[in-house]
Write a protein that binds this DNA or RNA. Structure first.
Length: 423
RNA sequence: GUGGGCGUGGUGUAGCGGCAGCACAAGGGCUUGUGGAGCCCUUAGGGGGAGUUCGAAUCUCCUCGUCCACCCCA
């Protein structure tokens, strides 16, 4: 080993193996197809944004901003952050480029790396990848349903099993505040039965108590009112419509009155798409309506809805569903060569075959025919073209059929069309 | 941030105080112009540091990494 210590990836950061890259492109292709069908336009935005964007957008008190954001100061004193999520950037994009003058609603999708400084564990990394679909400038319930539909269809097309859409409505800010007050009031009565964590949450973030896993807390939670009971008639109506549309689209959903989600900007619809297999529940997609975010970031009041999916988690789910994505195409023909003149001829033939759309492999860096045939065998090709000094001189090739071992001498000029015909 | 498990060739593993072994993968050969089976050879290893010991992959401590749970989330 070398004297120098090997430099490795930083904590929570991973290299992507060829195999995983293949999964990624499979997923990205699926995104592209759906984006095209539902008329979403792809955008990219910087990986570094002003930290203020997330402080204002994602929320100063959210865990993401408070504890998990990578921030840095540039030489000129700007405070930037590695983007921890995409939605605020999409809204900034909408405002910065005057997208409010475009035909509304504006439908955008994105794909890329995101960063959160957290302790890594299963399906949770410091650099991870998300794609998101966002609709800005529309309040209609069909848009909520369409966003959910897109993510659901996408996961479906990747043949991920055991999917459920979990959905809830948390209303507008005022309704949520009322609900929160009611919760705290109720909970204070049996405060002593709550777990220590929940007692803390009671003042900091009472909504989180709803999905505490402690049995005693769950017992208490069961007695509590649901947020939907606190919705205004308009929000209630909107939620009803979303549910009806999901039914119309044949999307299996489950009402989850305890689904509140961590980010401050959500209003009305919140949803997650989870994969449940024996005792385990993993969120692959999360999203909802965020009618307040645009004006929170300095724009006019503009309704919006969207969601984001964790790509690593989807890959994991695909693998668990037994879905294999091959990352190397099987070649059809292998070209073996012997000697310098033959090597040149072999390279020319390689190009000709490649341009005719034939999948061809070689090992030009290897000189022994033995090794080349061994490689060809491993690759599972149907035919091997052998070009040695003799063939190069006589302007012929030897075409070997691997399954039978038979070989025949073919004129070089006829080689390409013969191979094409035989495949 | 809190608690726990685990770090041995490229990969997967064995040994648990006394010569670091196996399988797969990779490269070469048996076959200097012919693959698959077989055989042979080669490359390559205890995360890092301190300590205990005649002797440490093995025990102790530190550190780094990783995995898992909590927290939170994609």
């Amino acid at each position: 080993m070398a004297e120098e210590e090997l430099i490795q990836t930083p904590k929570g950061m991973h290299d992507q193996m060829p195999e995983d890259c293949a999964y990624f492109s499979r997923i990205e292709n699926a995104c592209r197809r759906l984006a095209k069908d539902y008329r979403f336009d792809r955008i990219d935005f910087p990986i570094l944004e002003n930290a203020a964007l997330f402080k204002k957008g994602t929320g100063e008190t959210s865990d993401i901003v408070e504890k998990q954001m990578y921030t840095l100061r540039t030489k000129s004193g700007e405070i930037l952050a590695l983007r921890p999520e995409g939605t605020p950037s999409v809204v900034r994009f909408y405002l910065e480029h005057g997208a409010r003058t475009w035909p509304q609603p504006v439908k955008l999708w994105y794909w890329g790396p995101f960063f959160r400084y957290e302790k890594a564990q299963a399906g949770r990394y410091r650099q991870f990848h998300q794609f998101g679909f966002e609709v800005i400038g529309g309040a209609d319930s069909t848009l909520d349903a369409q966003v959910i539909n897109i993510f659901y269809r996408l996961l479906n097309s990747l043949r991920i099993k055991d999917l459920t859409v979990e959905i809830n409505s948390i209303g507008q800010l005022a309704e949520r505040e009322n609900y929160k007050k009611a919760l705290v009031k109720q909970l204070k009565k049996n405060q002593s039965d709550l777990c220590p964590d929940c007692r803390r949450r009671l003042t900091r973030n009472p909504l989180r108590i709803l999905d505490c896993k402690e049995a005693t807390c769950q017992e208490i939670v069961r007695q509590l009112p649901h947020v939907v009971d606190y919705l205004s008639p308009e929000c209630h109506q909107h939620f009803q419509e979303v549910l009806e549309l999901l039914g119309e689209l044949n999307i299996p959903y489950r009402l989850n009155p305890h689904l509140v989600r961590g980010l401050d900007y959500y209003t009305r619809t919140v949803f997650e798409i989870v994969q449940t297999n024996d005792e385990e529940k993993k969120a692959l997609v999360g999203g909802g309506r965020y009618d307040r975010l645009v004006d929170l970031l300095g724009g006019p009041p503009t309704p919006a809805v969207g969601g984001a999916a964790g790509i690593e988690r989807i890959v994991q789910a695909m693998k668990e569903s037994g879905r294999r994505v091959s990352y190397r195409e099987k070649p059809e023909v292998f070209i073996a060569q012997l000697g310098p003149a033959a090597k040149k001829e072999a390279m020319r033939l390689f190009e000709e075959l490649r341009q005719r759309g034939i999948k061809v492999a070689e090992a030009f860096g290897r000189d022994s025919l033995n090794a080349q045939l061994k490689r060809a065998d491993r690759l599972g090709v149907k035919y091997v073209v052998i070009i040695g000094q003799k063939e190069a001189l006589e302007e012929t090739i030897t075409l070997k059929t691997m399954s039978t071992g038979q070989q025949r001498l073919v004129k070089r000029s006829q080689a390409v069309s013969l191979i094409k015909k035989r495949l």
